[in-house]
Design a protein around this nucleic acid. Structure first.
Lengths: 329, 329
DNA sequence: TTGTAGGCGTTATCAT
DNA sequence: ATGATAACGCCTACAA
């Protein structure tokens, strides 16, 4: 395997200086059209590609945005996708660092900082608020999908999302609407608040039960529901997975969904849409989330913003109506 | 925000040369224990961290392994996790490049190559065999979870996995075992072959039906099954998602699983285990897959292997027995 | 054990 | 418009 071509190689074959080649490759001013053409052709011929490491070493700005995310999480994946387009539009590159069992968040962040990323986007971080603030004091940080005081955050309006869901169910004529709470999960408090507000506004009873994040939690909740005297008209679960658990147990027990009980979730995970499950749910606007996160990061990087005050950007979620919710019979 | 400390800064505060600091930071030989102690302390104090870009520029080897993966895919996430530990043990760093709707495989690979990764690990790549070979001729490449001629590949032994599954069902006393085929998906041909072999060996009828990759496909297949005169004893689906679709339709139709029909899948996706679904399935050994991929890559990088011949490493999958399969009643 | 010099591939500054 | 030259932060001889 032969050495990769460098600026020097291009310069020699094109019969000009390295400086000129550099100018051409960067599309900077200061080269004649003729030279430009020639250099580009030579570069193409010998397959020259600038070395990003050398570029970043020499430039004062690495033009890198570090991103931590939970590998395997659909929602995170969607945000990452949008992050790619948002940053590219601004001339930045993304450096990914996955959070996995053997590669925890602290390590992921460390890598990113060492890599001289100019700013960080943390998707659904789990670390403590204290460490988050600590980090943010050393490097621009924007947190996605988690509310945090003192650090820039971009998240969905979970209150509004829950209201959206309840209003949908109310509109279908349901009266006894049970909400399955998400406990201490990010957004859980807001969703519960939204449920309470909407249900109260509609003059309906507040029926809050313990839910959770997983199918297992949903299944348990459904079992409790079945043990009660009367089945509710509808169940609104903290998230899709929980909703799936509910549906499964109900159906196994001979309760037809949505005929007897309407079920809806939150998140619009691919499972909800791709399958015959056809779960009505609330979708978070990943594109808006990513765009807002990058926009805020850029403000920090440009230094056009006071270091002290953190912002809390809120994006509107949307109702996705599918087959698991129908009018009350 | 002040400038990040450099080697020079450490050297000054420690009262020695940069070279010495470099030696200490790299844990190389040639520094007294006293100096070592002093330098490390100073480095810690001023928060010095070596600049990887500068290191890679100076070193002849970037010590980088590029990895492409489908963001949001659990299986890929598991492999990535194992890749982190496998590479770290060998002193290499991982550079992630996600394959998403707006960031396709070609782009992901290009980034990795530009970043001067020494070798690439492609998890479940979708690009054509031709482009794969082309790439592999320019840079060491190992493909994970896809069979490819001419390029190093590491994958599960799908034939053995299918045999494992069938033998399990046979052992439970099932006679009429339907297999739901995966069509042209990676591994589908092998799994079908394994099914045929095992079923024939047990003197049972080959019952192959059209399945697919999604819950939808499984649901369709289940509907066909229900339309037939007689229900099979067990259904072995191409993958977990397909199996889930089968289970769902059967249960909705009043057929109890596993009492009337045992169902099993393939992949051991988190869905299978995390939930009350409790699907018996075949698990791919992600750790072994990752380890083997890295090991092979290292052979290439060390140049201890002929460029011409590609290897096809096969890892043994394992049976994971859960609740969706029980003895024939 | 320690220090000095040179260069990795690129870009920025200054001449020409 | 073009070219020489000096960094960027680090590592690797080699010399002391």
């Amino acid at each position: 395997m032969t050495r990769r071509p460098t600026l020097e190689d291009v310069a020699q074959r094109a019969g000009c200086s390295r400086a000129l080649v550099s100018i051409v490759m960067r599309d900077a001013v200061g080269a004649s059209d003729l030279t430009r053409e020639r250099v580009k052709q030579v570069a193409d011929e010998i397959g020259y590609r600038p070395d990003p490491h050398a570029q970043r070493l020499r430039r004062h700005r690495s033009k890198l945005v570090g991103v931590t995310f939970a590998a395997g999480q659909e929602f995170h994946a969607d945000v990452v996708d949008s992050l790619y387009v948002a940053t590219e539009a601004l001339g930045y590159d993304v450096v990914l660092s996955a959070v996995t069992p053997h590669h925890d968040e602290a390590r992921a962040v460390r890598t990113l900082v060492d890599d001289r990323c100019e700013g960080l986007v943390l998707i659904g971080p789990q670390i403590s608020t204290r460490r988050l603030s600590e980090l943010a004091s050393r490097i621009p940080v924007v947190v996605v999908a988690r509310r945090t005081r003192g650090v820039d955050a971009v998240r969905s309006d979970d209150v509004a999302g829950a209201v959206l869901g309840v209003d949908h169910l109310v509109g279908l004529g349901h009266r006894r609407i049970v909400y399955l709470d998400g406990g201490r999960a990010p957004g859980a408090a807001e969703r519960l608040r939204g449920y309470r507000r909407a249900v109260r506004a509609a003059g309906l009873p507040e029926l809050v039960a313990t839910g959770g994040l997983t199918e297992r939690d949903g299944a348990d909740a459904a079992s409790s529901l079945l043990a009660a005297d009367e089945l509710p008209d509808a169940v609104f679960a903290f998230n899709d997975r929980c909703a799936l658990g509910v549906m499964d147990v109900l159906i196994r027990s001979g309760v037809s969904v949505p005929q007897q009980v309407s079920v809806m979730g939150f998140d619009d995970s691919p499972l909800a849409g791709l399958t015959h499950i056809s779960l009505t749910t609330i979708r978070q606007d990943c594109v808006a989330l990513a765009r807002a996160a990058v926009a805020r990061l850029m403000e920090r990087l440009e230094g056009t913003v006071e270091a002290a005050d953190a912002v809390d950007v809120v994006c509107e979620p949307a109702l996705v109506v599918r087959g698991s919710t129908i009018p009350r019979l």
